[in-house]
Each structure stands twice: as C-alpha cells, then as structure tokens.
Amino acid sequence: MFKRTFSTLLIILLISNYNSIANNLYDKQDWREEEGIYTRIYDAKIKLISGEQTSIHQLAAKKPLIVALVFTRCAGVCNPLLLQLKENIQIILRKNQYKFSVLVLSFDPLDSLKDMQNLAYRFNLLNEPNWELAVVDSISSMTKSVNFFPVWDMRKKQYDHDALLVGVNTQGYITKKLIGLRSADEISLLISDINNVYRPSYRLPTPANMFTCFNYDPKTGKNTPGWGLAFIALPALLTVGILAFLRLRGKYHS
C-alpha cells in the first residue's frame, strides 16, 4: 500500500517537474534573442575612430544602428562576424533603401582608439560610409543593457562570448537582436525593424509551450498545426454533447 502510494506520488512529482527541468536546461543552453527587446540601450559615451566624441543615443538619433560587439585581440568569432557582416551589408545595400549605420564597439577595456583604427584598416572599413568603429566609456553598463555577458578565460587569454548584433532604433530602443553568424536576409529584417517597419517573426517552441496552435520549423520554414487548435473546436463539440444530454434527460422526464 505504502509502496504504491509512494510510487504514484513520485510519478506525479516527476511529471509536474519535467517542464521546469526542461525549461532550465533550455535557458542555460540557449541565449535568448528576445531578452531586453524594447528596452533602451545604455547611453554610453563613445569615441569614434575619427576622434569625434558622442554617445550611443546621439549617434542612433542620426541613423538607426546595428551594434556589433568585438575586441581587437579576438581569435574567435569576432573576425568571421565582421567579415560576414561586411559582405552581407554589401548585398543588402544593393536592394535595401533603409537608413542605418553599423557601430562596431569594443567591449575590452584594454582596447585603445588606435587598436580600433587598426581593426578598421585590416577590414578595409576606413572609407565605408555606413560603418563607425569606437571605444566605449562604461563598458559594463553598456554590455549589461544588451544582455551580453563575455567571460574572461584565463587559460586562453580570450573572452568567451557569442556573436551578437543589436538593432537600435532612432530613439535608442533595442528592437531586435541576432545571435550567431546570420544570413543577409535576417540582417535585412533587422534593418527594417530598426527603421520601425513591421516584420513578422515566429516564436520558437519551448518545452513550456504545450498547446500551440501552430509549430514553426525554422529549418524548413513550415508551419504545422498543433494541439492548441483542438481547444478552439472543443467548445462547439462540448455544446453538442451537452445539448444531446439535456434533450435525452428532458425526454426521460417528460
């Protein structure tokens, strides 16, 4: 008797906690692009490689920004991020009419303006009109405001960090983020978004979402019906059942 009660309780406990365990795992593995959307990026003072002093909001007020976070000694993802971004921007500029600037910011306190100028030289960005490279004053407040948390790896003498692009509109609001190396199409969507042009986007499923109407598969781009749809049909079905029951009951009583 005790055993049975105990095992039933254990099963209930496991089932009720499954979602929370799955959710925590999910949170740890995945950075969330939706984190911090519609909050303002920290208005840090920045120094552009041209020597001009300004702030992030002031720069954004002129043209919406794509902020890329890198450091000059980076042996990891920074180089491919910048290379691919440059290539994609060239493709986009051929078709996209929206205004924007790319602001490459260093999040390493050791980087000087000279280091950033060298970076611009190496990537052939010195004469690119849409590009600005800069060092920033309050690095931690700025990185915190975009949910970017690089971790210093003592052994490799490198920051462990993700490739992040932050879209900021002219009022300084973060309207979209892209994590990882992304295609020209996705960057083009980000550019529309920071220009306040509506772009549809699909929520990615999480284990906590059990009853979804449609499930979007980002790999195939297909939307398949989910269990949630059944809930929309359920009220009508239950009503038919209740009506049948009431009529049978009424017939019996009369």
Partner: peptide, 19 residues
Amino acid sequence: YSGGTFKNDALLIKNLTYF
C-alpha cells in the same frame, strides 16, 4: 499557478479570448 513551468500560446489564447 505553475510558476513559469507552463506557458501559453499567445495565438491560442487570443482565439479563445475572442471566441
């Protein structure tokens, strides 16, 4: 009451709300 372990589908809830 699930404390974040169960999340709703916004589209389903909107459909039910207007239903």
